[in-house]
Design a protein around this nucleic acid. Structure first.
Lengths: 233, 233
DNA sequence: AAGCATCTTTACAAAATCCTTATAACTTTT
DNA sequence: AAAAGTTATAAGGATTTTGTAAAGATGCTT
């Protein structure tokens, strides 16, 4: 990513595509547009963009399929555009490999912010695990050997479940994680129906790591979808 | 080989077994005895010794078969005890994977010398402690040669198991060690289910090294995970 | 053979964590 | 504005783990 970051926009509605192209270009990005999933895959292979923004409903190959196909060959960040209320689709998209979503109609500022967050996420550090037992993300400092967690330099003691949960959040900082994903990660694949666990433990984590648990700053909830860990202030 | 080297003695004659056990123990080895080949294989799997001394004629599984079975799963040194004159057996044993033999009746000194030679052979490359036989961490001062432990300058007497346990803690200061890891380190490979041992011995260690055993300062417990040695005050 | 030290096993109280439930606040939909 | 669904939070009980003492077992020493 030396010069401009390359953004591939996938949308079959010409107006929206035009708005996105101009909006992103004026903010310094290199943009190309594809009108459906299949041509998106072609452009992806030819042009190798740094990030994909895609609509969900499209001809030929819809956004869901596109996510899966892209995930099979790349770790590139994917932001999905969904119509407000299509919660089902959002969740499916995130489970299919999308990293974030933006509801239509959307403000350009919000999209740009989420876009920057995703680009920052991948360029940050590609998981420095094997070499060092220490993980530093934002205000969080996690030592896997001593199992210790520092937030802004202060140690917080976490129970095993809380610890597992936090690890999963921090290792996927910036990504929206669905309830399903989180439950499977911490409780194992079969407990994916008992959403109550998750709420309780997220609450407990917030009490321990948030300056103001009632107005979270790190562990943000994405209503009807899941949670997102935001390491920045 | 943290503490003592582990020697597995295999002999069905009780007198000889006893002589070997006491002789080896007085020279600082950790010894277990098996009365036949089959139980020897069991003990081997459980305890993971550093060397095997075995008779040739035994019930169930004779020394020759034992050599072959051990060689199939391990590079561990094997010393065979044979009755003087059974030259043919000696050759067969060596072909079956034994590393050395000692004729009965044997002198303890000879056996010890050959034993040291074999142990030296396998531990030839990694000799990290040769430079300094003394380990100082926080308030703890441990001399590997004399097997003595000082806490804040005061000597504490530890039994062999307590010593092995403490060594493991001090050498991994700050890290969280799981129950599994600790059990495997002190009791050997497959004693990883008997969590009761660990609780009892940690309690005993605390009584000996902690200023206030009921509120530990060095040996901290990480509930549901294991223990952590904290050298700082 | 008796005493001693160590290791193993057992039992139970104390502590910590996890799960469950209930209720209130919030968001979206009708 | 009400209904339905979701989320936040506290509090209790259930379950598991941990601390501790003490009895039994084993081998060593005298």
């Amino acid at each position: 990513m030396n010069g401009q970051a390359r953004i591939l926009v996938v949308d079959d509605e010409p107006q929206i595509a035009r708005v996105l192209r101009t909006g992103l270009k004026t903010h310094g990005y290199d943009v190309r547009v594809a009108a459906d999933g299949l041509s998106a895959l072609e452009t992806f292979a030819d042009w190798q963009p740094d990030l994909v923004v895609t609509d969900l409903s499209m001809p030929n190959l819809d956004g869901l399929q596109l996510c899966k196909r892209l995930r099979a060959i790349s770790q590139i960040p994917i932001i999905v555009l969904s119509v407000r209320g299509e919660e089902r689709m959002k969740v499916e998209a995130l489970d299919a490999g999308a990293d974030d979503y933006v509801s239509k109609p959307f403000g350009m500022d919000e999209l740009l912010a989420r876009l920057r967050a995703q680009l920052r996420r991948v360029s940050a550090t590609p998981k420095p695990r094997a070499s060092s037992p220490i993980l530093e993300v934002g205000d969080f400092h996690i030592n896997f050997e001593s199992r210790s967690v520092l937030v802004k330099g202060l140690e917080v003691h976490l129970t095993p479940k809380e610890y597992d949960l936090l690890i999963h959040f921090v290792q996927n900082a910036g990504k929206v994680l669905t309830h399903h994903t989180l439950l499977a990660a911490v409780w194992g694949g079969n407990y994916t129906e008992q959403g109550e666990y998750l709420r309780v433990f997220v609450g407990q984590l917030r009490k321990k790591i948030e300056p103001t648990p009632s107005t979270p700053r790190y562990l943000l909830t994405e209503p009807w979808v899941g949670y997102r860990f935001n390491p920045d202030s």
